[in-house]
Amino acid sequence: MVDHLTPEARSENMSRVRNRGTGPELRVRRALHRAGFRFRLHRRDIPGTPDLYLPKYKLAVFVHGCFWHGHEGCRRAKLPATRQEFWREKIERNKARDRGVEAALSDLGIVPVILWECGLKDEGAIVDIISRHAHRASADDDRTE
Rank of each mutant, 00 (worst) to 15 (best):
N94G: 05
H4I: 10
A103P: 06
R27C: 05
A35D: 00
H64Q: 09
A125P: 07
E25P: 04
P47N: 04
R136I: 02
E145L: 12
K58Y: 02
K121A: 14
D142W: 09
E72L: 02
P112L: 10
S131Y: 02
L115V: 06
F62M: 07
E72A: 13
V17K: 02
P80R: 00
V63D: 12
T82S: 07
K58M: 14
R97E: 07
T49V: 11
R99C: 01
R88A: 13
H135F: 06
H42S: 03
E72Q: 10
M1A: 13
R38C: 05
R38M: 08
H4A: 08
A134N: 14
L26P: 00
P47Y: 03
G100H: 02
T49D: 00
S131G: 01
H71L: 07
Y57V: 00
G109Q: 11
D107I: 01
L105R: 05
D128H: 08
A103S: 13
H64E: 14
A35E: 12
G21D: 08
K56Q: 12
W116P: 07
F86A: 03
R99Q: 13
T22V: 08
E89T: 14
E12I: 01
F39H: 08
A9F: 00
D141A: 15
C74F: 06
A77T: 01
K78P: 01
K90F: 05
V101W: 10
L5T: 08
R38A: 09
R43S: 03
R83M: 10
G124D: 13
P112W: 11
V61P: 01
P24L: 05
H133Y: 15
L5S: 06
R40I: 04
N13L: 12
K58G: 07
R27K: 15
V101T: 15
G73L: 02
L79F: 02
R20W: 00
R97C: 00
R40C: 08
E25W: 09
A125M: 11
H33N: 14
V28D: 07
A125F: 07
V28E: 06
H135I: 01
G73N: 08
N13A: 09
W87A: 04
L41P: 09
D128C: 02
G73P: 01
L120H: 09
G48Q: 05
G119H: 11
V17Q: 00
E117F: 06
V17C: 02
A137I: 12
R29E: 12
A125D: 15
W87L: 01
I114V: 13
R30T: 15
L105M: 10
L26V: 06
V113F: 04
Q84F: 03
G70T: 04
T82W: 03
P112Q: 12
K56V: 01
T144I: 15
R40Q: 15
P47T: 06
G100Q: 14
N19R: 11
E123C: 04
H133F: 14
K58T: 09
I114R: 14
D3T: 04
D122I: 10
S138C: 09
R29W: 02
W87G: 08
V113D: 13
R34G: 05
I110S: 08
R27V: 13
W68D: 04
